[in-house]
Simulated assay, not measured.
Amino acid sequence: MAVDVKGELFAPVIKNINTKTLKQIKEELEIIKEKAKSGRFSSEDLKGATFSISNLGMYDVIQFDAIIPPNHVGIVAVGKEVDNKVKLTFSFDHRIINGKETALFIKRFREKLMDENYLKSLSS
C-alpha cells in the first residue's frame, strides 16, 4: 500500500500477510498509520513486498490502473464503492508470473471474497 507523508509517498510492508487474521492485519495498519503521522518509517518497514494495493477509491476515483512498483509481482487498484460494488483492477508483471497463474489467482480471490464463511474465519 502507499502512504502519503508530508507530500512524499512511502510503501510500508505488512510482512507474512498470508499467515495473519484480518484483526492482526488491521492492528498492523494502525501501527503504519501512527508511523505515517510521525513520519518515522524504518528501512525495514519498506522492504520485502511482492504485491501491492493502491486505493484511490477514498478520493472518489471509480476505477484506475495502478503501476506495478519495482520488485513486485503485481498490484491491485481499488476504486470507489458504487452501488455496493467496488472495481478492482489487477496488474501483473508477466516477466515474473504467467497469465494463467494470474487468472487463477483472481478467480480464487473472487471466490474467497464471495464466501461469507471464509471471511468470518479470517476475523478470528
Results as ranks from 00 to 15, higher is better:
H94E: 13
N98Q: 06
S42F: 02
P69N: 15
E44K: 12
K100Q: 11
I14M: 06
G57C: 07
K37H: 08
F105V: 12
I32M: 08
I32W: 07
F51G: 04
I53Q: 02
S38G: 01
L88T: 07
A11V: 15
G7Q: 05
L22R: 05
F105W: 04
K15N: 05
R40I: 11
D4T: 01
K33C: 00
A2K: 09
D65T: 15
A103C: 08
T50M: 11
G74N: 03
E44G: 00
S121W: 08
Q63F: 09
L122R: 12
V86R: 11
F92I: 12
K37W: 03
G7Y: 05
D93Y: 09
I17W: 03
Y59R: 01
I67Y: 05
G74T: 09
M58H: 00
I14F: 07
E116F: 10
K87W: 13
S38L: 12
N117F: 03
A11G: 05
Y118S: 02
V13L: 02
R110N: 13
T21R: 08
S38T: 15
R108P: 00
T21C: 02
Q63A: 14
L29I: 13
P69D: 00
E44I: 03
I31C: 03
K112H: 05
F105H: 07
V61L: 07
M58A: 10
I106N: 10
S38N: 14
V5T: 08
V13M: 03
K26A: 15
K20M: 11
G48Q: 06
K80F: 06
L56M: 14
I31D: 13
D115Y: 05
K26S: 15
G79A: 05
K120V: 12
S124C: 01
I31K: 15
T21D: 06
I62A: 11
I17S: 12
D65Y: 14
E27M: 11
L46W: 08
V76C: 08
N18Q: 13
V76T: 08
Q24R: 09
S54F: 03
F109W: 10
K6C: 04
E27C: 00
S91C: 13
F41W: 03
V13S: 02
N18K: 14
D4P: 00
I106L: 08
E28F: 07
L46G: 01
A49I: 04
L46E: 05
E44Y: 12
K37I: 03
G57A: 06
